[in-house]
Structures are given as structure tokens and as C-alpha cells.
Write a protein that binds this DNA or RNA. Sequence first.
DNA 1: TATTGTTATACTCTATAACTATA
DNA 2: TATAGTTATAGAGTATAACAATA
Lengths: 164, 164
Amino acid sequence: MTATAARTPPRKRASNGAARRSEADEIGLDALVGHAGYAVRRFQIWIFQDFVRTLGDVEIRPTQYSVLTVIGANPGLSQMAVAKRLGIERARLVHLLDSLEQRKYVKRIKSKEDRRSHALHLTAQGETALAKFKGLAAEHERNVEAKIGKENREQLLRILAGFT
Amino acid sequence: MTATAARTPPRKRASNGAARRSEADEIGLDALVGHAGYAVRRFQIWIFQDFVRTLGDVEIRPTQYSVLTVIGANPGLSQMAVAKRLGIERARLVHLLDSLEQRKYVKRIKSKEDRRSHALHLTAQGETALAKFKGLAAEHERNVEAKIGKENREQLLRILAGFT
DNA sequence: TATTGTTATACTCTATAACTATA
DNA sequence: TATAGTTATAGAGTATAACAATA
């Protein structure tokens, strides 16, 4: 392969001395245009920021929300089970749970069957809080729908269902 | 809203003393199933890992690739312009460019028009290297296509085109 | 020997704030 | 005053390794 393979000719730049472009517009992405990963990254940045903003008052971030939701729907899971299911490192989950336990949303209960592991449960306060978080997360989801369209959101969910 | 709103009944767990589930399968995601952001996050983790693996030999990560590609296609851009176009913090771009400059892929040239700013260019070595990176990135993109299907990848790019 | 939870380390990335030199 | 680049800091997130208690 030569150095020119797949190279796009440099875009015409404002010549020296000419008026400089007023904005960071018109800058070509070249090969990035064809990369799904680039589009997905930019979309994820937008979607995370909207989630964090929408749930800003309750100070819940996406990862915390996912942990609370899975524990709420599957009480008694071990830390390993939650970590594997959500694709989180078990070492990281320790700190996430420390925080959620301090805030009285989650409790670790020593398992009698396997004394190495903890059974995870929501507290009563955690149940109430999670219901509120789900309402706000639904609001966030409506923002997503407004941004990309109802049909596109549904197609996206269908296309990526295998990764959840 | 009550605490029970939108709550899914807890899944049936293996009763105490019964055989425990062998794998972290069958764990319900509850409300996460309907969140585009969750699916996107999981997909992005997969896609980043494949990119990093596919370009592992050349030690180029997605962000570095995006910076090199934009500079290659738009020689002379300032750091601010690159940062804005790619949605990277300008403070972060400083370190990215430090690394790419050390590796002789990029050079910062003091602008004569505005002595505060640097015009960014690829070195000859950078041009050659980027061509190789693009070939590997195309290989990564074929992995994506194999994973989600040709049609789905194209739909994804179409749906998310507005975020690039 | 292997696994669970934990602690620790390193690096990537996001988000700010403040500083300098220029404009 | 405002902007470009830089330095610094803090927290989130990823990726490892190693350790104690337990299986």
C-alpha cells in the first residue's frame, strides 16, 4: 500500500492573508465519515450529557442508574453477577456500591450460602428513589426521541439489541 | 408518582438452598431495555475494543486516529479548530498532540498570522503512517459490518450522521 | 486451585479553572 | 477584554495485578 491510498486531497484552505474562516465549520472528516464508531462515540457523548443533565438534580449518572435498575429487578444478585451482566469491572463496582450504600440506596447482605459473596438489595429508600430516577430517565429518553426521531430510535434499539 | 410506578416485579430467584444459577445469564435488565443510551454504551465498548485490538500493533487509539485523520485532510488547522470539530477539550488535545508530535507524526508550526496559534500538519512520516492506519481502520470497520450486518451498519451511519 | 470482594495502580477521558502570550 | 495554547486538578471509566477469606 502506498502513502496515497485512500487519501483525500487536502481541502482548499483560506489563503495566507485572506479572511480566516469565522467558525469551525466546513472542516472535512475524511475517513471518519465512514466509521460507525466515530458516529457512535459522538452520539454517546450527546446522550450521556443529556442523561446527566436530566438527572442532575438527583445526582445519578448512567452507570449508577444501570446498577440500581438491575439490582432492583434482580434482588439478591452477587457483585460478580451484576458486574458481568453490565460489563463493569468488579473492582469498579466496589466503589460504585460504596457510594450507593453510603447514600442508603443499596445494602450488601452477607450470603449464607457462599460467605465470600454479598447479596445485593435496594433499601426501601432505594426503591422509592429508583422509581423517581426511572421517571427522569424516561424524560431523558423522550429527549433522545425528539433528537433523532421516533422511528430512528426504535431502529437503533433493534440494531443494537444484541449488545445489551 | 408512587414508588411502584414502572416497577417490574422482582424476578424469581433460586430459593435458598436450591442449586444456584450456573452463569450470569437470565438476569433481567428491566427499564434498561428501553434506553437507547444503554445499548449505545455497550456497543461503543465493543467497537472501541475491536478498534484498539485491530490497531494494537501500531498503538493507535480511536481518538488519536480521529486527530490524525482531520489534520491530514485539513492541513494548517489550529488546535482550537481541531478540538471544536472533534468535540475534544482543547486541554486534552494538548497532550494528544504532545504524544503524536513525539512520535513524529505531527508538527506544530507557529502561525505568522496569529502568533497565539499553531498550524497543525502531518509530517511525511505521519502521512505514510496514517495511510497504514486507515487500512487497519477499514479492517476494523469490516469487523463492525460482520458483527451487526451490512444493512444495519448503513442505517446506523444514516441515523447518527447528524452527530458527526 | 479457583472465586469473591477488596485494594491499589496506571492510563484514558471529561470537565474546570487559572496562567501566559498574544490579539 | 477576549482568545490560543498550556498547565493543573478532580472525577469517571477502563484495565490490571495482587491480596485475604472462602470455596
